[in-house]
Design a protein around this nucleic acid. Structure first.
Lengths: 236, 236
DNA sequence: TAGTGGTCTAGACCACTAT
DNA sequence: TAGTGGTCTAGACCACTAT
């Protein structure tokens, strides 16, 4: 792996130390100048590594104060178990769930995709874009990205038939999934897919799903038509 | 605006030139070294500006070849990245939580309030509107409605001090809470409370909270500034 | 006041693309 | 072969935080 850029190697090392609690949640990281010296790189290079982890939400920068390991544990556990799946909701409403493939392509990942899938930018991925319908009405526009290394030469129809089944057949087991929900006013392309008027709101969900060994296997972005879909949660 | 970092000024200038088609979709941008010289900055600084536009999906880098203005039509998934990148930074962490009361009133419930609280329309309720801040910045606008029969003559300061504590002190115990999340483009009043520009998106949450005897005790509507708040979920 | 992250410089070498 | 973006260096000064 010594052909990986140094800043990626440092990122991985830092991520590993956070995962192993060598750097604990909420604690302050050693100063950039200190880390740079430890890794024997310039401060700019060290900052590249940190920037990636900041983007992932694993680190938080506080100018003048320091860089902190984010305490994600709290927010997550605080709430929201039992989010309901798309098909479940459609079924509960007596609607027929369907989905239509728009795009199926193999390509090099964007920086964001690579970072969320924890792969190198020259490692190929497959991206599937599809629209999900409830009773013929577009409800969600979904963009899924998966490393080729995981699914190999999966084709369109295998994918349509169910990614999860495909992976389970190959002996992979699913672990956790991390989701983030926000609200956006989507751009023209997304509006078109969802039959939305420009200016309407959409729920935007980003999800990274992991295998039992904590390796990410898919990164999904989904836009839900704001007026046709809602998440139902129950807290106990 | 000369106190804005140079790389942000350059980003804005480049974005403007793309918008005005001075740099046309699909065309190649001048080389980084050329642009750096034009803007009279180092190449690293120029690259910071470009990196932001790449993250937004407005530019695409092709190593060895050049940097291109993305052709929005084609590259759907590429474009979608940009919507997230900014918001990600706004994480609700390490920020000081505050809240400010806007309204505290006793009144007869609306049909929706009565139905959610499972009370009669002539049974009085108390409504509290407040804005919640994270580090001085408005994050959420919350409208809570409670039956008077439950809290009696609770006053503003008792309410501010914590509704839940107040109820627990009186021997009530909390059960489940049911939530529903959707996306909306909020009206003028809500925008004002949250310092939003009209047309921006907000997460809209409706929650009904129950006591252990399954009697509803509060009905809450909350608007979260779409660009300042996200829900994090973890599924297992 | 000492330490921190934010920004910026003026270079350098690399692998890759395009010709 | 010339040009390109990718990476990296070894500094510098700044505003801000924490004490």
């Amino acid at each position: 792996m010594s052909d990986m850029p140094i800043f990626l190697q440092i990122r991985d090392d830092l991520a590993e130390k956070i995962r192993r609690q060598h750097f604990k949640g909420g604690s302050r990281l050693p100063a950039e100048r200190v880390l740079a010296e430890q890794y024997k790189v310039s401060r700019m290079t060290l900052r590249q590594a940190i920037a990636l982890l900041v983007n992932q939400g694993k680190l938080i920068r506080k100018p003048g104060s320091g860089t902190y390991v984010s305490d994600q544990e709290k927010e997550v556990s605080e709430n929201l178990k039992g989010i309901t799946s798309f098909t479940q909701i459609m079924q509960s409403q007596g609607k027929k769930a369907q989905s239509k493939f728009i795009v199926f392509k193999r390509h090099l990942p964007s920086a964001i995709e690579a970072s969320n899938l924890e792969i190198d930018r020259n490692e190929e991925v497959i991206t599937i874009e599809r629209v999900r319908y409830g009773d013929e009405e577009p409800i969600a526009f979904e963009i899924t990205t998966i490393p080729v290394s995981l699914v190999g030469n999966i084709n369109r129809s295998q994918m349509a038939h169910g990614l999860y089944e495909y992976l389970e057949d190959r002996g992979f087991h699913f672990g956790k999934a991390v989701q983030e929900i926000s609200a956006v006013v989507p751009n023209e392309i997304v509006c078109k897919r969802l039959n939305l008027t420009l200016g309407q709101a959409a729920l935007f969900l980003r999800q990274t799903s992991y295998l039992t060994d904590d390796k990410p296997f898919e990164f999904v972005k989904t836009y839900y038509a704001g007026d046709r879909y809602r998440f139902y949660l129950e807290k106990h």
